[in-house]
């Protein structure tokens, strides 16, 4: 994932200290969040790297007293969305809608494939792999609501959408996950 690089200025001492502390305290959470969105290490590394460069660049806009993690998650979410759009332009393919699962990772095109194909390939895979079969928006909302334990309001702020949208995306995402898990159980019997 080669996200477009932002213009960077050399660091001041204060700015460098801010970035160092941000990486030290939130590097792990940021990277794991990026990994859950992207589904592979290479993209997660690029996302985390670019996110911290954005953090460095925009450090003055961070308001003390607010959640740093929410801020950096929003940056990662936006970067990931931009990357999906960029890939869409490159491969001239559509980004899947909310109800359509997608395959992602590396530099592969974001192909739209029937759910059954994914289910067949995902049998016996851990739940995290089933999560990877959701659309980008669905995966984001599940990661934030169920793994990061964010409220709907916080998720809406991170994703830049309404609470109603968060609610409906989460409902549909979990319905799809339940179907995937149920299908996997039936196959195991």
């Amino acid at each position: 994932m080669a996200a477009p690089r932002a213009r960077v200025e050399p660091p001041s001492a204060e700015q460098a200290a801010f970035l160092e502390r941000a990486i030290q305290q939130y590097g792990k959470a940021t990277y794991n969040f990026a990994y859950r969105l992207a589904g592979n290490e290479a993209d997660a590394r690029d996302l985390a790297q670019e996110a911290f460069i954005r953090v460095y660049r925009a450090w003055r806009s961070f308001q003390p007293g607010t959640s740093f993690l929410s801020w950096v998650y929003r940056i990662v979410t936006n970067l990931y969305r931009d990357e999906l759009r960029r890939r869409k332009g490159r491969f001239q393919e559509e980004i899947p809608e909310d109800n359509v699962p997608q395959q992602f990772g590396g530099e592969r095109p974001l192909a739209v494939t029937p759910i059954d194909d994914y289910v067949e390939r995902q049998l016996g895979e851990p739940l995290s792999k089933a999560l990877a079969q959701l659309s980008a928006e669905q995966r984001q909302v599940v990661v934030l609501a169920d793994i990061e334990e964010y409220s709907y309001q916080e998720i809406a702020e991170v994703m830049g959408c309404s609470i109603g949208t968060v609610r409906s995306r989460l409902h549909r995402a979990r319905a799809l996950l339940r179907r995937l898990v149920e299908r996997a159980r039936q196959q195991q019997r």
Binding site: V8, P10, L19, N32, R36, I53
Partner: peptide, 22 residues
């Protein structure tokens, strides 16, 4: 599942961030 997969951020990421900035 998320906890089982959780890892530290690769040191390469931080190194690249600093390299880009410096």
């Amino acid at each position: 599942a998320a906890a089982a997969e959780e890892t530290d951020m690769p040191s390469l990421v931080a190194a690249r961030v600093w390299e880009t900035i410096r």
